[in-house]
Design a protein around this nucleic acid. Structure first.
Length: 113
DNA sequence: ACATTGACCCGTT
DNA sequence: GAACGGGCCAATG
């Protein structure tokens, strides 16, 4: 599938996040880069904040570059929810609450038609 | 139309 | 190793 470039910045972000497979996590910076917004990982976080769960976007699979879960006090319950969702998908967290990037970081596989 | 917000990443000290 | 600040864009009221 191709990513629509004509789409708005946020839509591009949503398109990327939506393609993150279950049991995998991606960093904001990675999503930003894939969305053609390299260097603007912020927008990814901002965009996800506006996104609703009903949008069908696995926002919980997007974490910060530290491998930890970013949370917003305004979001659902907090990091507990996001971590729980990831654990449900089989993502294991380090004792420190970090995710093993070597194991779970989403690697964008360029699928050539 | 203006001002404010909002879940980050990187470099330097 | 930890802390601080700077920079970017879009949506909301």
């Amino acid at each position: 599938m191709t990513i629509a470039k004509s789409a708005s910045t946020y839509e591009r972000i949503y398109a990327i996040v939506r393609q993150i497979p279950a049991g995998t996590v991606a960093t904001y910076g990675q999503v930003a880069t894939l969305a053609n917004l390299a260097g603007q990982a912020r927008l990814v976080g901002y965009a996800l904040y506006r996104v609703d769960i009903a949008s069908g976007i696995p926002w919980h699979r997007v974490i910060n570059a530290k491998g930890e879960i970013s949370e917003s006090p305004l979001r659902l319950g907090g990091d507990d929810v996001q971590r729980s969702l990831l654990e449900q998908e089989g993502v294991m967290f380090s004792p420190k609450g970090r995710v093993d990037f070597q194991r779970y970081q989403w690697q964008f596989k360029e699928v050539k038609c």
